[in-house]
């Protein structure tokens, strides 16, 4: 398997008040293409900061980060936006859909920023929604959809630009147990059938159980990194 993500001694330091806070304190992790990783840890352990940094939403204070062979540390904000746009899909706890736009428009959103003609945009968004079983919901707004449906729209949006990796930050945090399982099974299917690399940040062991590898954070450091026994 080829390496997709490689971090070396990643540091993220926030200046809050008098003493600096080490949100990431020397994190070195490698994630291979096609892997399914759960990132766990209590709140404040640095797991979300880790996801933001490797998701190119945030930049590390120091350390090296290579994504798909590129040295991300040397890239500017526009290049990071480009990577997020074409190579990364995000799924958030609060769904983060545009509330005034329909499911279809939300799914089209990443393609608006990658110069794809509107006809193809619509076709790909519809395909993506169909893949997630949202046929007939294309013109519903988020407030007309259930939580599980909203999260599936968010996943459709994450997949629409054919990103090789999806980052999910507490994707089941706002969902009931049954829907949570459905979403996680969906992730497993995407990972297995489409070879999409999954990184799921969670504090829920049941959710982590769907992954193949669990990385635990505490106080900004990786304290364990083990394969899940099936």
């Amino acid at each position: 398997m080829t390496t997709l993500i490689e971090t070396v001694d990643l540091m993220k330091i926030y200046d809050v008040g008098d003493s600096p806070v080490h949100a990431l304190d020397g994190v070195s992790v490698t994630i291979d293409r096609g892997d399914f990783v759960a990132v766990m840890g209590p709140s404040g352990s640095g797991k979300s900061t880790f996801m933001n940094v490797i998701g190119c939403l945030d930049r590390p204070t120091s350390g090296e980060y290579r994504f798909d062979g590129m040295d991300v540390g040397s890239l500017g904000p526009d290049d990071l936006a480009e990577i997020r746009n074409r190579k990364i899909g995000f799924v958030f706890q609060g769904f983060n859909l545009l509330s005034r736009s329909t499911a279809l428009e939300n799914t089209e959103l990443p393609m608006l920023y990658s110069s794809i003609p509107s006809g193809e945009r619509k076709k790909r968004a519809l395909d993506s929604l169909r893949l997630l079983g949202l046929e007939g919901r294309e013109h519903h707004r988020p407030n007309q959809l259930s939580g599980g449906q909203q999260q599936r729209v968010a996943i459709a949006r994450a997949l629409v630009n054919d990103a090789p990796i999806v980052f999910a930050d507490e994707p089941t945090g706002n969902l009931d147990a049954k829907t949570s399982v459905e979403i996680m099974e969906l992730f497993v299917r995407l990972n297995r059938e489409s070879g999409i690399t999954m990184v799921v940040v969670t504090h829920d062991p049941d959710v982590a159980a769907f992954s193949r590898r669990v990385i635990r954070f505490l106080d900004g450091r990786v304290v364990s990194d083990v394969a899940v026994e099936k």
Partner: peptide, 16 residues
Amino acid sequence: TREIGIRMAVGAKARD
């Protein structure tokens, strides 16, 4: 602000 954040997360550049 949140809408701007979502747009940026999916790849909107500052100039967009």
